[in-house]
């Protein structure tokens, strides 16, 4: 049974045809890495899955429910889809703990005690339990991104979307964030990541989707695909990034 399903999705920014008929099916527990050059539509694809961007044709379902950008629908969707951004997007006026507790308290209507227990558990999971009362600005980029992961996890999403979440980090901080992702993958959470981390895609990911010119150009098992690409475009891409 598929958790995320895209059927012939087309997306335009004005005259610019960004996504040209995307078909994609993601099952629970898969770790799917979306790779490709910038401008190939990777991030747009991810943003369509969680309703941040509107698509013009086709259909997207998550957990059997249709995705639209409608506000009410979006809020229902938020319960099953978590999103991590390149720039963390933590709330700077709240402590780390408050960041993680906010949505469970006001969206899921959990009691403060319950939300705090969840928040502490999630921060523990990303290795930042002791930062509960710190403000985001006091943390390194890698720590901030781990808080963002904890914040998304606190809503117990069925699938976690990661939009180039290590791209804004200093190289020495990338590892700590990837380690958390790897841990989550082992626990069986469904991950869809737009990434440039080829090693991570190969070693941790179960499937790689290569996007080119707004289409799914090639996809398959991560190890097979990356070691034995079929199309010239993917060969070229792998040659350029490795």
């Amino acid at each position: 049974m598929s958790l995320v399903n895209l059927h012939q999705v087309h997306k335009y920014y004005g005259d610019h045809h960004v996504l040209k008929g995307i078909d994609l099916d993601i099952k629970a527990g898969e770790v799917v890495s979306i790779i490709g050059k910038s401008g190939s539509g990777k991030s747009t694809l991810l943003r369509c899955i969680n309703g941040l961007e509107q698509y013009q044709q086709g259909g997207i379902t998550v957990d059997g429910k249709e995705v639209t950008t409608d506000d009410i629908q979006m809020r229902r969707l938020a319960l099953s889809v978590g999103m991590i951004f390149q720039n963390f997007n933590l709330f700077p006026h709240m402590t780390v703990g408050e960041n993680v507790m906010l949505a469970p308290t006001i969206v899921l209507k959990k009691s403060k005690a319950e939300a705090e227990a969840t928040a502490r558990a999630m921060l523990e999971k990303v290795g930042l339990a002791e930062k509960f009362d710190s403000f985001p600005e006091k943390l390194s980029g890698g720590q901030q991104q781990r808080v963002a992961i904890a914040r998304a996890l606190a809503m117990s999403p069925k699938v976690l979307l990661c939009d180039e979440i290590t791209s804004a980090l200093d190289p020495e901080l990338v590892g700590e964030v990837l380690k958390v992702l790897e841990q989550l993958a082992k626990e069986g959470i469904t991950l869809v990541l737009v990434t440039h981390e080829m090693n991570f895609a190969r070693d941790v990911g179960s499937r790689v989707v290569f996007m080119h010119q707004g289409k799914v150009w090639e996809q398959g098992d991560s190890k097979t695909l990356l070691s034995n690409p079929q199309t010239d475009e993917l060969k070229q891409f792998i040659g350029a990034v490795l």
Binding site: N50, G51, L52, D71, M74, R75, A78, L79, V81, G82, M83, F85, N87, N89, L90, F91, L102, A103, I106, V107, R151, A152, M155
Partner: peptide, 18 residues
């Protein structure tokens, strides 16, 4: 304020007024 603040809120399921 960065647009990401709105987007992060939306993705967490907060309504416009929240």
């Amino acid at each position: 304020l960065p647009k990401g603040q709105w987007e992060a809120s939306r993705c967490l399921g907060l309504s416009f007024l929240q």
